[in-house]
Design a binder for these strands. Structure first.
Length: 225
DNA sequence: CTCATTTGACCTCG
DNA sequence: CGAGGTCAAATGAG
């Protein structure tokens, strides 16, 4: 976590430096506006990420203070399990994302965020047409990565997903099993996000969406809740 | 054989 | 007590 934060701050610093160089070197009349815009975009994204990560660091600090009662050898398996399943309030750190899907092109490669998600549940939610999928980071055990996400297909538009992220990855996208791709952090993708048009999606089933969703999660119009 | 998904049961919270 | 979230055994895919 601290590493992520430092990386993000370093990114911001690097962008500012580049911007400074650009402004220093060039004559005011022939400024490369597109480069400047791109750098400003990157800088904005980087600052947002820093804020997100800082917010989560504070949240984690609060969590550590709240100690769980250690399980006793006298506890029945059921009680031990119950203690293990103390539900922590997740609402303090969530990120809500709406995703519009483009299935016309090869999705897996272009849209994946570099993290590996493992589905651990699915539930019908009252008042919604489609079930909600529950995912956690594949490395939740091996690297104590706390990131989870809930995926709900929009009732109105089946090409739109509501994705709610909980917690922050403590693993890195670079640790992806697929060494050939080094996809960007999904936080950064907002920079390039675009809502893509779709062909007729009516024949596609929800399971297909969920399968695809497992391959990627990218943000368009994300906001902190 | 290993790892991911499915799904019913279990658990917590409001 | 019901709804939503998670667990974990069974099952499937590669």
């Amino acid at each position: 976590m601290e590493n992520n934060l430092i990386v993000e701050i370093n990114n911001s610093r690097a962008f500012v430096k580049k911007l400074q160089l650009l402004l220093d070197q060039q004559d005011l009349h022939c400024l490369d506006i597109s480069s400047i815009k791109s750098l400003v975009n990157s800088l904005t994204t980087s600052i947002e990420n820093t804020m997100t990560r800082t917010q989560f660091a504070i949240f984690q600090g609060e969590q550590i203070k709240q100690e769980e009662s250690p399980s006793s050898v006298n506890d029945t398996p059921r009680v031990q399990r119950s203690k293990k399943r103390i539900r922590r309030s997740k609402e303090k750190f969530t990120r809500h994302v709406k995703v519009t899907v483009n299935l016309a092109k090869g999705l897996a490669g272009s849209l994946e965020d570099g993290y590996h998600w493992r589905k651990y549940g699915q539930k019908d939610i009252l008042g919604t047409k489609h079930p909600k999928g529950y995912f956690r980071c594949t490395y939740s055990q091996s690297r104590q990565c706390l990131a989870t996400k809930h995926v709900q297909m929009s009732d109105g538009d089946r090409t739109v997903f509501d994705i709610t992220y909980f917690g922050e990855h403590s693993c890195f996208p670079g640790e992806s099993k697929n060494k050939e791709t080094v996809p960007p952090d999904h936080d950064v993708i907002t920079e390039n996000a675009s809502v893509l048009s779709l062909p007729d999606m009516s024949e596609l089933f929800y399971q297909d969406y969920l399968a695809l969703e497992n391959e990627f999660s990218f943000a368009t119009n994300y906001y902190l809740s």
